[in-house]
Design a protein around this nucleic acid. Sequence first.
RNA 1: GUGCCCAUAGUUCAAUUGGCGGAACGUCUGACUGUGGAUCAGAAGGAUGUGGGUUCGAGACCCACUGGGCACCCCA
Length: 425
Amino acid sequence: MKAVIPPVKGTRDFYPPQMAVRTWLYQTVRRVSESFGYQEYEAPILEPLALYAAKSGEELVKKQSYVFTDRGGDEITLRPELTPSLARMVAQKQGELVFPLRWWSFGPFWRYEKMQRGRSREFFQWNIDMLGVNSPEADAELVAIAAEFLRTVGLTPAQARIFVNNRRLMEAEFERLGIPPEKRGEVATLVDRRSKMEAAEWEEYATEIGLSGAQLNGLKSLLANEALWQQSEELTRLFEVLRALDVADYVQFDPNIMRGLLYYTGTVFEAFDITGGVRRAILGGGRYDNLLADVGGDPLSGVGFAMGDVVIGIILSELGLIPPLRVQPASVLVTVFSSELLPETLRLAAELRRSGLFVATYPESAKLPKQFKYADRLGMQAVLVLGPDELATGQVTVKDLKRGQQVTVSRTEVYAVVMKILTEA
RNA sequence: GUGCCCAUAGUUCAAUUGGCGGAACGUCUGACUGUGGAUCAGAAGGAUGUGGGUUCGAGACCCACUGGGCACCCCA
């Protein structure tokens, strides 16, 4: 093969089979979002770099964003996340929108990172948020949506779990341990890394940060305390609602969940595959109370989460949870017997399309075996033949490819015969 | 950005201590001039990822690059 210009690193070509999976995921996300009353929206793919400067976190902005200068000299970013765009859109129309506002979106994002399993530089992400309410009940609704999604795609609580924590609770506990406010960011990172490091190495890291032995021990018992949530009124109310929504079996308290984004202020959560296939978060989110003010709006709090298509795609594919998807839209191929019969063939195809069937014609006259094979390879269910014999009697031959049976019927009956084949398939 | 592993036909893989690059599946043609899948026969398909080096001779050994995988980092 001659040299083909390769795709941009980290992007994926979606051939029809992969596109069918992406569309299926989109439709599943849509169904779950809409079942809770969320409205679909979309933001620009290009945004000013300044939009992310405020709160997205330095790593994300400075190292992972695609930034370029446009012809007018402005610094433009290919969006690495959606929440700042959402904040702007809401801030711009804050006076006329109806709150609490429930919105969802599914679109492309870009992050410049090292390629590895579960990560690509161009990915699709589901975002869903509720703005204008600051309550544990609102937090619970978003967690419940995440759980319903997992249930809808067929993941059981034994396969996937949502881990929940609360930053305010952790702040209070850090306070109790005498950890000064300026050190809490580092301690949060320390907590975040615990599952990724050897125990001894982790303790060494804790000492480096400046934790005393007593503080370290306090922190360790804190992180091992599965009942800690009971000290948080927010989490207590959250779990109560989750039980009422019948998703509690998907959700579990975990004081180790902190999350990297700076703008989270209260409840945070992440879903993981717990069968061990992929160790990355399937989805993650939480409560943010200051985001709108940061982009110039009036203070308004929100809660939401995001799910990338890559990790969930790997997990569902490995567990065999992606249903068989139809890649071929046409169910019928009308063969072209000869050049002379081409106009009549096209007329037949047009008639059937107007009656509602999805019909492809062979684009030229060719041997019938070739045309039958074409229909078979593309996954069509019926093949029609209009040859000299049929033309003479005003009939059409309809073959059911799956059963291998065929009938020759009058032209007015073709639609009904094809429909019978399709419904029986 | 750091470290380790990998790269041979469209795909999955062979090729002995360095000695003329093969197979299966897939594709195409025919057996079958009005019928797909199954079977049989035949054919096409490769500058062994790119560029250097060692050697009489490199798919194999050495270096760099590109692409991919895994771990770190970060995160969806």
